[in-house]
Design a binder for these strands. Structure first.
Length: 377
DNA sequence: TCACCTTTGAAGTTT
DNA sequence: AAACTTCAAAGGTGA
């Protein structure tokens, strides 16, 4: 990505194009230097949205799918056909041949859930001539067979073993219990009895489905602590809760997933807050074409998500509005007197959220300053 | 164990 | 309709 090295030793890259940081010195001048303006970007987003709505109205799709009680196989096949047609002549035909399966990462099959470690591994591996979103597709291209093996076309062939090209247990810790105990060779086949917390009702695993424990980061603990000791969780077995279907990722989230490892490798940062600040700046530094890739991918993510879970709504994962706000407000009440956290530290030193150059506490700015010493403190 | 941090964008809710 | 709020990912940190 050419924008990553803007020259002059400024390895921040996006530092010159911090569009959102309007309070920083010569920002106006820098904005003018940008290849695209916010207005352009807004137009782009608008056009992408319009295209999406023109092609397939989400509401119409949802309604249509809710009304039509077709089998998933048929729907998914149609979707794949549609995507394939859509991609004809488009950049994804060449750049992202396997995209339609973006939300169907087969490595999730062994344990039926998404593990952050899987992402970590895949991201690190992305440098071998794979397409830019390999990090989002933590599985081999073999998994993008034109006749997707995860479609239960051969459901009747129970016991048919798929050659295991690699020992995926090395990449994805196989839990000792539940579906995780199934041999990797059985991973492709979604027998109804194998359905686990990360499995769609159709038998198709989906990273959007997570155990009811909540957030993904907590899900990691769930994997390690709960799955590792299944016999110690009788309550969970007695009361199996409905798996949580997560929101589809937006363009920026997709970008972050892909680029996080790069940033970590470049500056040895691990704090996500700091990484995300950098990624946010780099996101603004992308050209409209580069961003368009992610907007398009995000659009397809949403479409696929809609097809997989037609009755799902973002409201399903929505905490009652105001609840969190009140929690935050309560926490902020003592933020000006009690030092210790980045927020409190910012309050003490009068720093704003964007610049956040704060040294006295171990906040993200400290990590940033270590990584980019050329930036002002 | 879990909320927080931090980012952008989508989608939901409130005004 | 506009403004506001929540949630997606990530992993270290602190309560």
């Amino acid at each position: 990505m050419p924008q990553l090295s803007s020259g002059g030793g400024d390895d921040l890259g996006a530092n010159d194009e911090m569009i959102s940081f309007k309070d920083e010195g010569d920002q106006d001048e820098k904005i003018q230097e940008n290849a695209f303006t916010e207005r352009d970007l807004a137009d782009l987003k608008s056009s992408l949205v319009n295209e999406s709505e023109t092609n397939q109205s989400p509401n119409a799709v949802r309604r249509g799918q809710q009304n039509e009680h077709r089998g998933y196989q048929e729907k998914h096949r149609e979707h794949l056909d549609g995507v394939s047609k859509h991609q004809d002549g488009g950049m994804y035909k060449t750049a992202y041949p396997g995209y339609p399966f973006l939300m169907l990462p087969d490595p999730y099959i062994p344990n039926g859930s998404m593990s952050p470690s899987s992402n970590k591994v895949s991201v690190v591996q992305q440098s071998h001539g794979m397409h830019p979103l390999t990090s989002l597709l933590p599985y081999s291209n073999d998994h993008f067979n034109p006749s997707p093996p995860h479609l239960p076309t051969d459901m009747s062939q129970k016991g048919v073993h798929r050659p295991q090209s690699q020992d995926i247990s090395g990449f994805y810790s196989l839990p000792q219990g539940g579906v995780g105990q199934m041999p990797p060779s059985m991973g492709w086949f979604s027998h109804s009895l194998m359905l686990g917390p990360g499995m769609h009702s159709t038998g198709i695993p989906h990273p959007a489905i997570v155990p009811p424990s909540g957030k993904q980061d907590h899900h990691d603990h769930y994997d390690r602590n709960v799955y590792a000791k299944p016999h110690q969780e009788p309550k969970r077995e007695k009361e199996p809760k409905k798996p949580v279907i997560k929101k589809p990722l937006n363009a920026f989230m997709l970008y972050m997933k892909e680029m996080r490892a790069k940033v970590i490798a470049e500056c040895t940062l691990k704090e996500s807050a700091a990484i995300n600040q950098i990624l946010g700046r780099r996101w603004h530094a992308l050209t409209r074409e580069e961003q368009a890739k992610y907007y398009e991918l995000a659009r397809k993510e949403r479409q696929l998500h809609m097809q997989l879970y037609p009755s799902w709504s973002a409201r399903d994962n929505y905490v009652r509005p105001g609840k969190k706000k009140r929690r935050k407000r309560e926490k902020q009440q003592d933020s000006t007197t009690d030092p210790g956290s980045p927020k409190k530290c910012r309050a003490r030193f009068g720093l704003n959220q964007q610049t956040d150059w704060c040294g006295p506490c171990r906040c993200v700015s400290l990590a940033l300053s270590l990584c980019y010493p050329s930036l002002p403190l």
